[in-house]
Amino acid sequence: MQFARPLAELIAQLEKLPGVGPKSAQRLAFHILRMADDDVRRLSESLLVAKRSLRLCDVCQNISEGERCEICSDPRRTDDVICVVGEARDITAMERLNEFRGKYHVLHGLLNPIDGIGPEQLKVRELIQRLANGVSEVIVATNPTVEGDTTAFYLAKLIKPLEIKVTRLAHGMPVGGELDYADTATLLSALEYRREI
């Protein structure tokens, strides 16, 4: 089917998004056409504002509005314990527990030579720099995949000589599953039974 050019362009842009195939791109495009003008404006503005005003937190590398993210600026949270995650979205999963009172560090990926990713492509150096300031424990909460396990092992190799305890989320995680999708009960027990590596 031939679409009017602006519509075809909209569909083409939507199709570039992850998880959006040709069919859902069309569905989304037609939905947008039916939306009120105000809602469309708000959507397009929020896209631009989000893109322009967000950056990485200087401390933990989480996506942040300012130099320091909300979590790093929270005086009630301890600097003693750092929870290392692969992606920023994994923080949301941990935060749902309302249990962890330390801070985070986002690696922005996992070791993955097939995709050309070594430690230099991850925020590893930034993590090591943070450890000079009296950190007593690092919890590695990377996904329980081969890449996640390898990254955890690598971090432990780097951190242990600094005489800092390194633990890893363990029990209950579905094998090959992703932290992002784990249900709360599973994740809670994983946190409770974390083990030293």
């Binding site: 070791l111 993955n112 430690p119 081969v146 396990d149 390898t150 990254t151 092992f153 690598y154």
Partner: peptide, 27 residues
């Protein structure tokens, strides 16, 4: 194995530390 083979090829072109190799090998 796929990852380590990719790493071996990567090491032909740039430095890869023993720690990185060992982390894959342990798995």
């Amino acid at each position: 194995l796929q990852q380590r083979n990719a790493l071996l090829k990567m090491a032909q072109e740039r430095f890869v530390s023993d720690e990185v190799f060992e982390s894959w090998e342990v798995q």
